[in-house]
Design a protein around this nucleic acid. Sequence first.
DNA 1: TTAGTTGATAGATATTATCTATAATGACAT
DNA 2: ATGTCATTATAGATAATATCTATCAACTAA
Lengths: 325, 325
Amino acid sequence: MSGKKMNFSLTQLEYAMAVHRYGHFAKAAEACFVTQPTLSMQIQKLEEELGAIIFDRSKKPILLTQMGKKLIEQMQVVLFEAKKIGSIIQQDKKGTKQGSLVMGIIPTIAPYLLPRLLPVCENLFPDIELQIKEMQTSQILKALDDDEIDVGLLATPTQMNKMFEYALFYEPFYVLCEKKHDYAQLKKVKYQSLGMEDIWLLEEGHCLRNQILDICSTRRGKGVQRRYKFESGSLETLKNLVNQYGGYTLLPSLATENIGSRSQLVPFERPIPAREVGLVYRREHYKSELIEALGEAILKCIPEELRKIRPKDLDVLPIAESDRR
Amino acid sequence: MSGKKMNFSLTQLEYAMAVHRYGHFAKAAEACFVTQPTLSMQIQKLEEELGAIIFDRSKKPILLTQMGKKLIEQMQVVLFEAKKIGSIIQQDKKGTKQGSLVMGIIPTIAPYLLPRLLPVCENLFPDIELQIKEMQTSQILKALDDDEIDVGLLATPTQMNKMFEYALFYEPFYVLCEKKHDYAQLKKVKYQSLGMEDIWLLEEGHCLRNQILDICSTRRGKGVQRRYKFESGSLETLKNLVNQYGGYTLLPSLATENIGSRSQLVPFERPIPAREVGLVYRREHYKSELIEALGEAILKCIPEELRKIRPKDLDVLPIAESDRR
DNA sequence: TTAGTTGATAGATATTATCTATAATGACAT
DNA sequence: ATGTCATTATAGATAATATCTATCAACTAA
């Protein structure tokens, strides 16, 4: 019954408001940036559509009819509520400049980047509430998909075609071993020579674990049995393990500060294994402007030498299929 | 700042609501009686216009984005308020069948018509609140112009081109005089023979007064001095005056019941002077349907002989210029 | 892979908003 | 009354846009 289509437009309501406001078609038309005939016709259409006369054109200035009074009041309400739609967006777009942004970061980056990044953000976007969650790659991708976080910082490329990817920097790996370890005697390590016997690994779920397994896989085929002594949840634990019990592990560049006193860092020979670190967000994300600004901020706060590294000097590892879900 | 034009339409909001409701473009399109591509494009346009993605099309059923949740809520409000505009009208249109109608009636009709009309209306429109004001012609025309009354019942034609006129019946005049009066000796009176000496008149403002003066004006030019003894506010008083003090007056047909015992009614010879009685309302009045029904009701309740009188048998008097303002 | 489902895109067409130019209306002064 | 002015309405042309049909592209499930 009441479900008949509404055949009037918001524009018509605005025109009506203008005529009411100015009491004069020509002036109202000017205020609406249209010509007077346009306004006349649209008001007529509106009146016809509603089946009621809104304006008493015989008065100067033009007055509302009884009916028009009631109608214009409600039109006011409609337009006010309609404008709110726009302002909901704007408010959230301010979220671009002074709202909130939720970011997921993988655990092999977060502890090393955040101490640098947070002060910079504090400075660049004083009004933005940056909320950060430490999450593994698969969790980040799901959360992005479910629209629960705005952006993820992780090893790329993800190959997720729903997502927009934005490579930030390339992070080479280093070998960390005790000073007495064979590798420590070398200036540089060939990654084909890495063995599985005494490597410390992250536990499952970390994309870095799979990348490292990838690096070591060149020798894995040679019948050498894996012998994982222990699997850790964080690189810091790995560093401690190396320092205390010997063996070795691989560290991404940002994690190479503050190694133990009995440990030594050894770079790779070319091609240097590395990972690409980038921002990922939904292709249609409306905060993309802010996200790009965040990317700039991240680049600003990493060490300069890292920033300058180009992928052509590296062997950039993809992330494992299993980390994508 | 926030005054940028809203470039979305109510239709688009309805489409968005439908997609949200059905979680499915094709079904939503069907429910909106448009094709699926139409819906797709309009939703895209809406999203682009707003600068925000509303729907997450990768989910089945289609879900709202974070932003979409906020937006759809507000869209709901806008549509609700917009529908109210329609229902304000409908409610008032019911005012056509069960609302109120304000009518102005001139004092030379009201007392004779109302006792007949009110019971009929009671019957025909039991739910209509008929509000009646006794007003003089000029007051009625102003009140119509100011949209304070819906319709006027008065002597027509008014010649007001903003108004819509609807002639109902033709009301001949009669002479009322004491039985001993010269006129009482005649079967019929020639109106050219009417004198001003002993006529009782209504006070100024009544259109009937001017019409009667018009009738008598044929002899006025002959140097006979007007000698108004008294001017009355109502025809009933005139009737009493004639009955008590002699002299004569003119009465419209409806007022000719219940004359005093010493008085006599004398009809005119042709051409019989008469007035046209009709309804007047604003050309664009949205209650015109009810007003016409009211006209029918009035015709139904006047005496049959009056209803049958055609203007060709009469000398229908116009109303005076001075009564129009 | 191969259908089947579903949303997006393309091009054609119909509708509608808007424009310019002009007419009709009403008020006011001569 | 009559012409002028101010104001709104109308007409016809044009530009913008909503909608259609037909088809494509992406994803799902057999």
